[in-house]
Design a protein around this nucleic acid. Structure first.
Lengths: 331, 331
DNA sequence: TTGTACGCGTTATCAA
DNA sequence: TTGATAACGCGTACAA
């Protein structure tokens, strides 16, 4: 303690939390003392006293997929605006591991949790009874922020239809209906039926590794080639990573993207722009997703402080509109 | 406090830190009490008492580049082995911002720092006088773990030479000599001179954004095309992201990778494998880099606890051998 | 404007 | 094997 300056700890404390409650003269003295003693404020002690860690826990499936590292990037960038620090865990799709992560986070008194992993059901998450928000996953019992996937499906179908496709295809895995991504399938389908487009929903599991993805998508492409010989086919892939793989497979065969194929991805992750032919994609507003997540979290945190958990009885679900990014795969 | 179980806090404390120092019978009682009271251990209070936060701060330039998110992924995965949690900041190339991040981290009593950003000179970092390790950056006054870039330069030149190139080109930015990446240039050059290969070091700044990268690399490629008409040219790019851009430019022109071009990247980041033609690359052993960083950090942390800062008088510099990954751009 | 006294939840030390 | 006590650094009354 820096009372070797002659002040009481109270005064020092005031200097930390509200410097102007101390004489200007004494502010100087304390500042000098801190410098010469090389003393650093201990925020953990403050936490002991008032309970605010200003730390939030993040549980993400992995950093390998462009989408997740992109979201994490925007989450940690909110530090400038909200002041929260982030302890980050990568989930590895193992429920017990994630439970341990959450325990650890709770032991550190993080003020809230941001969950991107799909491993634990929202019912279990809500039972922890702490401020929490999920992003793009099943969210029945917890607050969440998601992209309007239904709208995204419609946008994808619309652009493919406008680009003169005879048949519209959407490839997606067998997503449960309670996951936001399911909306993409529904939106795509509804558009096609209303507008009497020929369409085909391909439910395929392309696996978890790149090699599995590649093999699965190649298979799908070859079937499609065989089936729609003289037609212009539009393909809406479930994310940009898969769209890029499909694009590469086609270009490897033809040397370029032939007019008969149109491709739309999802996410607007960097790869969509940097692909050999820039990919048209239904873009998620990742910056806004991160910001909304923080806002929902702060609402909950404040409710907790005021001991008004009623505010949280109904989960808040924020839905953000996707933005179609037109690039060269739909020309 | 859970003494409403009848035990003293000491006993409860023992249960947390070393359950077996309590009777089996009492372990049960306490466990039950914790459950019914929904009581969570408070590790921050422990920190107050014994000083160990088990938190490490990470300062990374961004999560946008594949290499950095890849490294971060491996760093946070060391939790399983070392038990340290990580608070992550993205630096944004602003020195003052990074200084604020470090202050914040110090106020939270993180036990150490891992620095990947290049913004602050190692001399300044070392002045903070806390356990710290850098990865692939200037490291004169601090501990570090780096890839053997000199060896990497040699590996790249060797494979290009073996693949029958008449002229070997290495494109890199104007890296200062004290940055590890400079070794790549030196290694490449030395190999060429010893083996009397025709070579050319192109010092180019390709900029920070993808669009700048693309324009710069396209320029470089067109010059090269004009200059070496009937030769087989081997190009060693300074990282996989750039190698991939070059590859795309070439394929866009020729529809495939012509025999006259051979390409080698650096890092072995995911993009090198997932490129339209899988790219041969000098691979960094990212998993080992993360592990070595943690080991160096724990050595320092222990030295700090024992108040033996002599151990840190000479910075430890760990150098890891790169591994050449042969793929299809050098066939 | 500044100081005193106490509490936050844990660990270390010593004693029983 | 357990308990009592002091201490970690700061916030918060309340008092001066």
């Amino acid at each position: 303690m820096a009372e070797y300056t002659g002040f009481s700890k109270t005064t020092i404390s005031r200097y930390f939390s509200n410097p102007d409650s101390v004489t200007l003269e004494n502010q100087d003295k304390i500042a000098h003392a801190l410098e010469t003693l090389n003393y650093k404020e201990n925020k953990l002690a403050r936490v002991m006293a008032n309970g605010k860690t200003e730390i939030i826990g993040v549980i993400i499936p992995n950093l390998y997929m462009h989408y997740y590292s992109n979201v994490l990037d925007h989450i940690i960038s909110t530090y400038e605006k909200y002041g929260y620090k982030f302890i980050v865990f990568a989930g590895k799709d193992d429920a017990d591991v994630e439970r341990r992560y959450i325990s650890e986070l709770l032991a550190y008194k993080t003020e809230g949790l941001i969950v991107l992993s799909h491993t634990l059901p929202s019912k279990e998450l809500s039972a922890y009874n702490i401020p929490l928000v999920t992003i793009e996953r099943e969210d029945k019992y917890v607050c969440s922020v998601n992209t309007d996937n239904y709208m995204g499906g419609i946008q994808a179908a619309t652009i493919l239809s406008k680009s003169g496709c005879d048949i519209l295809i959407h490839a997606n895995s067998d997503v449960p209906e309670d996951v936001p991504a399911y909306g993409r399938i529904k939106g795509f389908k509804n558009f096609c039926e209303k507008n009497k487009c020929d369409y085909n929903i391909l439910i395929r599991d392309f696996g978890k590794t790149y090699d599995e993805n590649y093999a699965g998508i190649k298979n799908m492409f070859e079937e499609t080639e065989a089936k729609y010989i003289n037609k212009t086919v539009g393909i809406f892939m479930s994310n940009d990573t898969h769209a890029n793989i499909l694009l590469n497979i086609i270009i490897k065969k033809y040397g370029k993207l032939p007019d008969k194929y149109k491709i739309v991805g999802f996410d607007n992750s960097p790869i969509s722009k940097e692909a050999i032919v820039p990919i048209t994609t239904v873009g998620q507003q990742v910056d806004k997703i991160a910001d909304e997540a923080m806002q929902i979290l702060t609402v909950q945190i404040n409710a907790f402080k005021k001991r008004k958990p009623e505010l949280l009885s109904k989960p808040i679900h924020k839905v953000l509109t996707p933005i179609l990014i037109r690039r060269e795969t739909t020309r």
